[in-house]
Nucleic acid binder design. Structure first.
Ligand SMILES: [Zn+2]
Ligand SMILES: [Zn+2]
Ligand SMILES: [Zn+2]
Ligand SMILES: [Zn+2]
Ligand SMILES: [Zn+2]
Ligand SMILES: [Zn+2]
Length: 288
DNA sequence: GAGTTTGAAACT
DNA sequence: CAGTTTCAAACTC
């Protein structure tokens, strides 16, 4: 049991306010002298010292050293930051020359597109009024590599398409996909569908485990809407909604805490009926 | 917070 | 390419 690397939470080494802070873009830092084999991140603050100025990533890697594509920060080509909870992180300036660059190089060798964004916004050709209008509705774009979901129905954040708030495309090879075009993706609808999916999954799992091996493969996830048909599942009054909502959509009344707060958002039967009819009418329109 | 589920990434 | 393992996030309780 070598005391090789543990996390030193107690020791907090405040960055001694680097005297050199080039106001320019990337900060070129001299080979850091502090060879402290830190395992907690205390690199760049929220200041402008990060590699990629985009939004702050938050990883919690434990075994990858934040040097594989598992790491959200690394895959975004940005250093880990104070918000990360990673362990034994090498995705920072201190390891830039020692291991980070090599890792990047190796990965690029296998897949030159590894660090390219996986979501391409849908405006390849000159977008004009039409497409632009559609685009304003957000939600369009393609997952370049597609998802391969099997049990999530592509309606949970396990699915990268759903997570990115886009519909599945032909690049995807998902099974029992419910993240298809034809339904307006307003929050309420997605929310409602999610509730149904969640409960459906729950029930099927319970039944499957409690009984036997049967009822496993075929359909843990129901097909929710068939073009101009009604919905074939039931949301009872009082059923709880788990409110999984794709990114960049605001959830009214949901806080970032735990989903316990979301649990209070119960679906009311009246609303459901309303939404169902709305849903059907819209799907008919689109089916045209 | 601990434990489970999920699918991308990595590996064979 | 397919099957398996590893991994970290999403999710559940
Ligand atoms: Zn990481
Ligand atoms: Zn990180
Ligand atoms: Zn890290
Ligand atoms: Zn999917
Ligand atoms: Zn997909
Ligand atoms: Zn799908």
């Amino acid at each position: 049991m070598d005391s090789r690397e543990k996390k030193h939470e107690s020791q907090e080494e405040d960055l001694p306010s680097q005297p050199q802070t080039p106001p320019s873009r990337l900060t070129e830092v001299t080979p850091s002298q502090n060879l402290l084999q830190v395992h907690r991140n205390q690199e760049a603050e929220a200041k402008d010292v990060v590699v990629t100025p985009s939004k702050q990533r938050r990883c919690s890697c434990k075994a990858s050293r934040c040097l594989k594509l598992y790491c959200e920060c690394f895959v975004a080509v940005s250093y880990c930051n104070n918000g990360c909870n990673c362990l034994n992180c090498h995705n920072n300036l201190a390891y830039e020359t020692t291991s980070r660059q090599e890792a990047i190089k190796a990965i690029l060798e296998c897949n030159p597109d590894a660090f390219k964004p996986k979501i391409s916004s849908s405006s390849p050709h000159g977008i004009n009024d039409f497409q632009e209008d559609v685009r304003q509705r957000q939600i369009l774009g393609k997952h370049n590599r597609g998802c391969h979901c099997k049990r999530s129905g592509c309606l949970r954040k396990y699915c990268e398409c759903y997570q990115a708030n886009i519909r599945c495309s032909e690049n995807c090879r998902c099974r029992d996909c419910n993240n298809f075009e034809g339904i307006s993706q307003e929050i309420m609808q997605q929310t409602r569908i999610n509730a149904a999916v969640n409960m459906s999954i729950k029930r099927k799992r319970k039944a499957a485990s409690s009984h036997s091996v049967a009822a496993r493969d075929s359909s843990a996830v129901p097909h929710l809407v068939q073009n101009n048909h009604t919905v074939d599942y039931v949301v009872r009054n009082g059923d709880t909604c788990l409110l999984t909502v794709p990114n960049n959509q605001a959830v009214p009344g949901s806080t970032t805490s735990t989903y316990r707060s979301s649990l209070s958002n119960t679906i009311q039967l009246g609303h459901v009926k309303e939404l169902c009819s709305l849903l059907v009418s819209k799907s008919v329109q689109v089916a045209h």
